[in-house]
Structure formats: structure tokens, C-alpha cells
Amino acid sequence: MSASIPIPSLAGIAARGAQPAIQGPPKVQAEALNFFYGETRALQDISINIQPNVVTAFIGPSGCGKSTFLRTMNRMNDIIPGTRVEGKLLIDGTDIYGHGIDVVSLRRRVGMVFQKSNPFPKSVFDNIAYGLRVNNMDGSRAEVEERVEQSLRQAALWDEVKDRLHDSALAMSGGQQQRLCIARALAVKPDILLMDEPASALDPIATQRIEELVYDLKKDYTIVIVTHNMQQAARVSDFTAFFWLGKLVEYDRTQKIFTNPGEKTTEDYVTGRFG
């Protein structure tokens, strides 16, 4: 049975992977990045240039390292004991794993939305004001209120919640909760927004709203989205990176990845032959 499914081999795939030809300085630049969970090497020599103000999708089968790589960009993996990073990861030219990097300020600049929406068990208003407070961005009450409204509008949630800002966030629907998490991330004015399968737990309509939001937000933010859903990657992203077994196999314009990929493995994955 297994013999009939052609499992592609990693042999012959260049460590750097294919890179699209683009002008201009990248927003995020990984150079031979390796990541270890204890002895397990979860990322192998990842090198990639992520462009500003576009949506970049990370695709690949479960356990391929796409979420791990996403979480190296705001150093969320630091929380997990026994992890280690080698190589360079530059944001606007600064190595975020270098000396003197303040992780707290990094995470303010690189926002994150998680797979499972995780609003704080507080009111809608307090969920958004929290980020302002912990980053000392809370001026007067009026300023906070303005920023809360602005963020909720950006996340296309304002009209639905403006009359119940002081109700619990947990009373909202799943889709609303996820958009609240996006609003919460936007409130602290990040440059980059990392989204780890943000719509995987949502119904099709809520998913569509998230996708529209991603499309609208890219003019102001650099967005990196991890997704299991290849149609979603094709719909929302400008660039797509395909990961497999901890390696970056191919990275190119989304259209090319889905219509004319350079690697056999990519083609097999996007056509649903494995993964």
C-alpha cells in the first residue's frame, strides 16, 4: 500500500530552497536558521527573505516546522524549556537573537494570533486595553478609548461590539473572539503580524471574514500566516513557503507555487498527493 504512494525524498533539494526575485530590503530575513527542541532539530538551515506589506503563507504537513519557524520570529519558543536557536534571524536588519535584544519590545513589534482564540477572561475593552497598559502606551482614558475603538474597527469588529464593550469577551462567538484577538494584537501597533492557523477552528463564514481582514491589513502590516488549508493560502497570500521535514523546500510567489512549482515535493503536496 505504502509503496504505491510516492513519498518524495529530500535528496537533491538545495538547502536554501528556491527564492523569488524581488527588489527592496526584506522585513524578515533568516540566515541558516536552526532550531532545536532538546536534541531534536526541528528547523534545518532555514534561509528566507520575507517582504514587507505582503501576506506570506507557510504551508506544509503537520510537524514540518512551519509553526516553529513562525514562533521564532517573536521568540515565543523562548518560553519552552530546552529549546535552542542557531543562525541568524533579522528583522529590519537587526538580529533578534543577538545581544541586547529586549524580548518584550520585540513581541510588541511582532504581534501574534493563535490557532485557538485566547481572549483574556475580561471585558472586550480590557482585552484590548491590556496591551496598551503593559507597554506603557496608556495615556489618558480618552486616548485608550480611542485606541480601543480604532483597533476594533481595524479588525472589523467595532459595529458588532460597540454596545457591549464592557461585557465579557468569552460571551462572544468563536469568530468574534478570534477577531478580538487580532484587534488586541493590532492595538499595540506592531509592524509584523504572525498568524498561526487563525481560522482552523472557525466555520466557513467566520473564516471568510478573517481572510478578508488579512487581505485588508496587509497594506499596513507584514503578515505571515501558517495554514493547513491550501485553498486559504492560495486565496490570501502573495508569497508561499512550503516546509517539509524541518526544511524550507520552496518559497515563491503564491501563484507560481500553486500552478508551476519548481520542486516535485511541492507539487505533490499542493496537489494533495501527500500530507
Binding site: I79, S105, R108
Partner: peptide, 23 residues
């Protein structure tokens, strides 16, 4: 306390103490 609450707080740029105290 769910780990997702801690992650959500850290991801916004909260310090460990802020996360423990406020969340």
C-alpha cells in the same frame, strides 16, 4: 490556568510579572 492565556499575554509584550499579576 490555561497556557493559552499566558501565551496571549506574552505575545502582546507583557513581562513575566505582568502576565502573572494581571492575567
Amino acid at each position: 490556568v490555561p497556557g493559552s492565556i499566558r501565551e496571549g499575554s506574552y505575545a502582546l509584550g507583557a513581562t513575566k510579572w505582568q502576565t502573572v499579576w494581571y492575567q
